[in-house]
Design a protein around this nucleic acid. Structure first.
Lengths: 203, 203
DNA sequence: TTTTGTGAATCGATTCACAGCG
DNA sequence: CGCTGTGAATCGATTCACAAAA
């Protein structure tokens, strides 16, 4: 399974779920392509990897599509996520990610004594110093880093030491992590600067 | 200039600026590669597109590197950015993007009457209905969409109609925009689901 | 027909390998 | 030498084109 395909599966599932809500039972690769703003053949190629098959004239069964993507993207048992940094961004992420069955933020961490101990959106905020034991107790393997750039490296080190294997990083730095730990960067500035260039140069 | 190179230029510049602060005058492709977690030959290939040349034994001049990247990424005149949606995420973005000389958020928009008219982090919040005139008056060409999924499409339509040419989209939907408008999606769920898969499957 | 599934071709991005130069 | 600049090779992702199926 290629990474790009993986990203698109997440998008296809979201689209298919919306179709389910609208009681649409079948969908053509061409329709998914239009909705996802890609080509139909790319959709078909992505779906080849899945345990769902379409039929000419009928397209793909929407429910089957969702089920097949669930099988790939959802762990058999929910994966717990730690959120580090309860600033404005951290709180935004927390309110965004409540009530997800398969990926749920079960613990938050900050250094601010005013935040430690509080319940934010139903999630307990711990002192950063408590990270390792909490991560171990809750079997957390994923973390979201939403701290200022200056603290990101030390937070990443603590997370890796505690056994976290994947980091979604919002800090504008490139984290250095041990072999076997995955980092996904979501870098607002990089994206905005790229966009500004494209708009300015017109492609 | 390739898109991936463009993204990395933003990263190189950030690294080079930090080196400047540390009074480092020269840097090897190998060092930049280590800091950016990529290969040295990719760094060199990226820098080939720039008006900076390195010298064997000496590497690249840090100040020249920053200047050369500025030339590519910074518009001659600052580009104004509109922020749509002043929820938690919108406010987080606003506090993050204050005091940038070349890309600055000059106007915010929301539908909540409690927010309209207020100054948030020094930026005026307007009613969404006022978007078109404000965008035109301030010569805004870029927008950040930080509204709930349900509103994202209509917001995008209004933005495009008002003349915005680039959208940084945080809503978990694929926007449909007219020819010539660029969209960059930052999709938290897609990234987190991908990360969860990678951690689970171990590559 | 129309639409899927897929081999082959293409396009794009990265790495290799090394000539050239200080 | 050590390091840059770059042509050639490789790797990966997307599109093309069409046979097969209904």
């Amino acid at each position: 399974m290629q990474e790009k395909t993986l990203e698109r599966l997440s998008i296809y599932r979201r689209l298919a779920r919306r179709l389910q809500e609208e009681n649409v039972e079948r969908v053509f690769s061409h329709d998914l392509a239009r909705m996802a703003r890609i080509t139909a053949s790319l959709v078909r190629r992505d779906l080849m990897d899945l345990r769902v098959q379409g039929r000419p004239q009928h397209g793909y069964p929407v429910a089957g599509l969702v089920a097949a993507i669930d099988e790939v993207l959802d762990a058999p048992t929910p994966q717990n996520v730690a959120l580090v940094g309860l600033g404005q961004l951290g709180r935004a992420l927390l309110s965004y990610y409540i009530d997800r069955p398969h990926l749920r933020i079960t613990a938050a961490f900050d250094v601010d004594p005013l935040k430690v101990g509080r319940l934010v959106h139903g999630v307990r905020c711990h002192d950063l110093a408590e990270l390792a034991p909490v991560v171990r107790d809750q079997g957390i393997t994923l973390a979201i880093v939403a701290v200022p750039a200056a603290q990101a490296h030390s937070v990443a080190r603590v997370l890796c030491a505690a056994g976290v294997r994947g980091i979604l990083n919002f800090a504008p730095v490139r984290l250095h992590v041990p072999e076997g730990v995955f980092v996904e960067d979501l870098d607002f500035t990089v994206s905005l600067e790229k966009l500004a260039f494209l708009v300015r140069e017109g492609l």
